[in-house]
Design a protein around this nucleic acid. Structure first.
Lengths: 246, 246
DNA sequence: AAAATAATGTGTTTAATTTACACATTAAAA
DNA sequence: TTTTAATGTGTAAATTAAACACATTATTTT
């Protein structure tokens, strides 16, 4: 019995040397990074898409991505893509999921690591302004190229969940924002209506909003106060955890 | 301006053809899957580790992993590793994160996709029983090989969070379990004490526990009722979401 | 200049949930 | 038979979430 087990082990468990040979061998796979870049404009959640350039395959919209260099960290690759496409380099970026089904890409075996990025659509002023690169309403994104629809859906769901337990939404707003801006953002992302009074109470009680003593300018109604998010305070007070619930 | 932008675009954006050549080219990277396999025994959370076989490098403990085959789905590779190492093939498995720093592995550039698995330690009876493969107390895991300590920590934190919002813990218990078992599990994973009465109330109110009309056997005290988790009911009633809180 | 409009800003009341805590019950062990 | 150590149930207080109404302010209209 022990012998059988060891025999099985010998067959199944690879030594580091064996791995080393495989690393140099034929199992090497192309690795890409795809970025789901979210923006917020006119109270709508947007996603940045590019048109697949090769009509021969499909002229559908797709996510922004590129092959990871052999000497390039994954995170670095994601930042590079963002920088190239938006001109911004100080942006929120978080890895979400890796998609690696064998037939997912027409160019061959490509495993893709997906990142979500949240950028301020006003700040960035797309460096590449032509009809190949466009902001799309999240609610009307359908039929993306390759498996990008699946990837996009996963990332959108991730965002909906993540925004409720982590303060990343602020990256989509101006540094100074009104509570109405913030609520509009949450309503757009969660695709629901929220009670204005309870929404305020919730955020004030969390106590991370910094009243900067300024008011909105040039609004066609009574101007609201402007706030900043206090990241330092958040880092200190961060919740340990929540409570069992499913 | 528009010309400049287009020039930049031409330089930065790759056609599918260009990608195709890269996919076949020198950017191909070795891809591995590492599994953090959790178990629960004697009221302690355990993780399955293997001793790095090549002393030349390090004789430290490491996670179970292997290179992903060129024609193998990522998920398939993770299942294969689990099957080889535990003999089980109907197990809970979920992708957690991908680690891809350039220098992370001594054998060369290897990007690794990490999965967490939860198995019933009693059911599986390790197929390979020797001193190379061992269950370790989660609380005393330190100094793993390569970047496996970092990977393990990320996965443990993932589990602590995930178990509070999703019913995956049951995979660590027998099909039939007592409420005490369940509480012990949560206490071990969250590394805390919980109030027995409130814990019960919470789970009963969620209403996914199925009283199967059986009692514990061979316990040295008053036997408790046994339950099963009602996955079907859970799938139907699943929460939309929770509420903003961070 | 005054009135109407449309948003901001602030409570309060009720319901639901979470927390803290106590006692009866059952089976095994002494 | 008594003691022990766990299971099983319930209640009161505190906190949090949900539902809801009115005064305030700047703009726009009359």
């Amino acid at each position: 019995m022990a012998v059988t087990a060891n025999a099985k082990q010998a067959k199944n468990i690879k030594s580091l040397l064996a791995i080393q040979s495989e690393v140099k061998g034929s199992n090497r796979i192309a690795l890409s990074v795809d970025c789901v870049i979210f923006g917020f404009d006119e109270n709508k959640l947007k996603v940045l898409l590019i048109r697949s350039d090769l009509k021969k395959y499909q002229s559908k919209w797709s996510l922004l991505g590129d092959i990871v260099g052999y000497q390039e960290d994954l995170d670095t690759a994601a930042y590079r893509i963002l920088k190239q496409r938006t001109g911004l380099d100080d942006v929120y970026l978080e890895q979400v999921h890796t998609f690696g089904a064998v037939g997912r890409h027409p160019a061959g075996r490509v495993v893709t690591v997906t990142y979500c990025s949240l950028i301020n659509i006003r700040h960035h002023k797309l460096k590449i302004l032509d009809n190949e690169l466009h902001w799309h309403d999240v609610m009307s994104v359908t039929d993306l190229a390759f498996d990008h629809q699946q990837i996009f859906s996963a990332c959108y769901q991730w965002l909906q969940k993540r925004i409720q337990e982590h303060p990343l939404g602020f990256n989509l707003l101006q540094k100074k924002f009104s509570l109405r801006d913030l609520q509009n953002l949450y309503e757009a992302i969660l695709n629901t209506k929220l009670d204005r009074r309870n929404f305020r109470k919730k955020f004030f009680s969390m106590d991370f909003l910094l009243d900067i003593g300024e008011m909105e300018q040039d609004v066609p109604h009574r101007p609201g106060k402007l706030y900043k998010f206090n990241y330092e305070k958040f880092e200190k007070k961060k919740k340990k955890w929540i409570g069992i619930d499913f």
